[in-house]
Design a protein around this nucleic acid. Structure first.
Lengths: 239, 239
DNA sequence: CAGTATCCGATGCGATACTG
DNA sequence: CAGTATCGCATCGGATACTG
């Protein structure tokens, strides 16, 4: 790890936290990912070797603990107390980002796979029906693709290939619109009315589905631009 | 600027904030440094070209504003509203650092020049006497060197060479001790009693001097280690 | 003072392939 | 699944020189 040669606590903390990929790794750990493969899901473009390297550094720094599962020998990564206390910083960064650089989100930042992965961990489990619900998402307009969300207890999962089960709900959506909805920039009602998002299936499931998604952790934070000058030509901000 | 390819606001914010040197540049701007040369004082090891490059990126990102002083043509760098709102994040990072990685501060992080520069902006101006007070600091034990602090209105200054004026106070100090004092790890009373810091000069000035320094912004944050296991063999934590 | 310009060496990063 | 190993390349760091 590269140092700054400063005793200032901001510098010492930045040596650990403000390296490339590190804030995102901490974010994933904070959001409940503990397995190496789970971390990779939330960090699509990180080189494997670099993820290993970062996890080792964070271990050395006392931020992450690596535990070998004795039976399965599959290691688990947990935040230490020190690591867990980075929560408010990561959250603050996200809020700042949502408030100030939201207009900078471009097509190259859209990623349905990542969106699905994010959805999976923001489901209102208590609102789900008892029996499993399989939802198929068809994204179009940009980054086209099909994904499946299997809503079941104890925890939902994402599939890149058709799961074995019959599909209960079909979501047909514009990729940009779904991202905007997720980030709190578009309301369910508007999305449905403008047919940017279409839900097909049994009436009761169609009606309930929007209530199962908790949306992004930052969907409640308004963009600073919104209040003054609504922007027109930008991806996640366009109305 | 390198991107992550993620729409997540944490990622978008990290692209801007979590680059090498950037948190420290923002810290300096938040602490009231606006001139290029002032920034360089607070960032001793940054290559000039890199500082220029970072300031440009931050300008593009809407975090920093560069203004040409019309008469002097000396540019000033100011944080925009967006930049100013990074305050809580920088402060949070510093508090986390003080709490968790304080034990990691080693000899290579000590820097009397930086310490003097930090002192300069943490003076209780309202407590200073009317007439100028020139203080000479002699550091020894590690990173030996002599610096001068000129306490005067409207603002104090640091000199690496003897200022023109007579010296009023002489501070003779162990380098480590002075850093520990500054970071809240050592009390004035203990430092003086153990003769780690000696103050010489007119009695009234000697008595008042400790009250003029406000100490580091993070001196009030206790190390997490202190409560449980006091560490012995580390620079800023050793008693 | 506040840059700009250039050069060089180190290493951080990203891509790909291989392994128990 | 959770890594290692290798390798090219861009960036960073550090030095130095020049400028208005």
């Amino acid at each position: 790890m590269k140092t700054y040669g400063q005793f200032c606590p901001v510098a010492k903390a930045a040596e650990i936290f403000a390296e490339r990929w590190t804030p995102l790794i901490i974010r994933e750990l904070l959001m409940g990912c503990h397995r190496f493969s789970e971390l990779e899901m939330g960090l699509p473009h990180i080189p494997r070797s670099l993820l290993v390297q970062r996890l080792r550094s964070l271990e050395d720094a006392g931020v992450v603990e690596r535990k070998q599962d004795p039976n399965g020998r599959k290691p688990r990564y947990n935040l230490t107390t020190a690591g867990a206390e980075l929560f408010s910083i990561v959250k603050g960064l996200g809020e700042w980002g949502q408030r100030w650089v939201n207009h900078d989100v471009g097509l190259e930042d859209l990623d349905p796979g990542l969106l699905m992965w994010d959805m999976r961990r923001r489901i209102h489990m208590d609102r789900l029906p008892q029996q499993r619900v399989v939802v198929q998402f068809d994204f179009h307009g940009a980054r086209e693709g099909t994904y499946w969300l299997v809503l079941e207890h104890p925890e939902p999962s994402v599939c890149l290939q058709p799961p074995g089960f019959d599909v209960d709900l079909f979501i047909n959506t514009d990729t940009i619109a779904m991202h905007r909805l997720w980030m709190g920039k578009l309301k369910w009602a508007d999305a449905l009315r403008q047919e940017l998002i279409e839900i097909e299936g049994p009436t009761s499931l169609v009606r309930d589905f929007p209530n199962w998604l908790a949306l992004s952790l930052f969907s409640g934070v308004a963009s600073a631009l919104e209040t003054h000058r609504p922007s027109a030509d930008q991806v996640l901000s366009q109305s």
